[in-house]
Amino acid sequence: MSKFVHSLQPTWSHDRPYYDGLYVGIDGLDGSGRSTLALSLKNWLQSEGYPTVVVTPFPNTRTHQFITQVKHDRRLGTKSRHLLYASLFSITTQHTILPHLSAGYVVLSDRSWISLYARAVAQGLDSAWVRTTLGFALVPDMVIEPQADPVSAARRELSASDALDPLESLPNRHNFDGFVEFQAQIRDILQELKKQENWHLVNLQPDSTLELDRIVHQIISQLERSDAPS
């Protein structure tokens, strides 16, 4: 079923006005379980017979070395870093997201424009400017947010990796409190955005099976929806 290509900036032109797949944003705090959720949903949807792909905002591993190098260079300022991320997301949108949507895939975006926006604004950038920079980005057909509070997100992050990422913390406060406060700011920004989007909260604790079942059915019903004139 065809859907309009909606960009954040409504006048943005793409080569094809419609796609047959479904664009799902999986957004939330760092450490909230986004990637785990994306993988579980992918496996479930594929087992139901729906072709599904998980993408992150950054292009595939062929650029990994360069991206890692520049992303972790502490000298890069907030604005320059955000513009770099936006550029990478545009490459992913053109080369991965749109082709898969055109081919009828469910694209699970492990961070859509929403996460990039929330992080940049939490770092102190002007919200209107950040929105403008992401004007090319696709507006998800639905957004799924794994429920998590900042403290439990920090604990989850620490159990999954050696150290908290300084880029996911307040500037110059790369410790537990800095991470929690930064994530709290992101949570507040997401709270504001929830009013505008087709947003679904998912509680993966203590038993995720029922929640996943519910959300998979939401995705399938959205896939059946069509914006195109018959």
Binding site: T63, F66, L76, S80, L83, S87, S90
Partner: peptide, 29 residues
């Protein structure tokens, strides 16, 4: 900081018009 990545993506011809513009803005800022 940005140029090595820019060179890589240009060589691969990956840049769409928005990515091209944003990457140069990143370099500029």
């Amino acid at each position: 900081l940005v140029k090595p990545f820019m060179r890589h993506t240009k060589k691969k011809q990956w840049l769409d018009k928005a990515a091209f513009s944003l990457l140069h803005a990143s370099d500029f800022y």
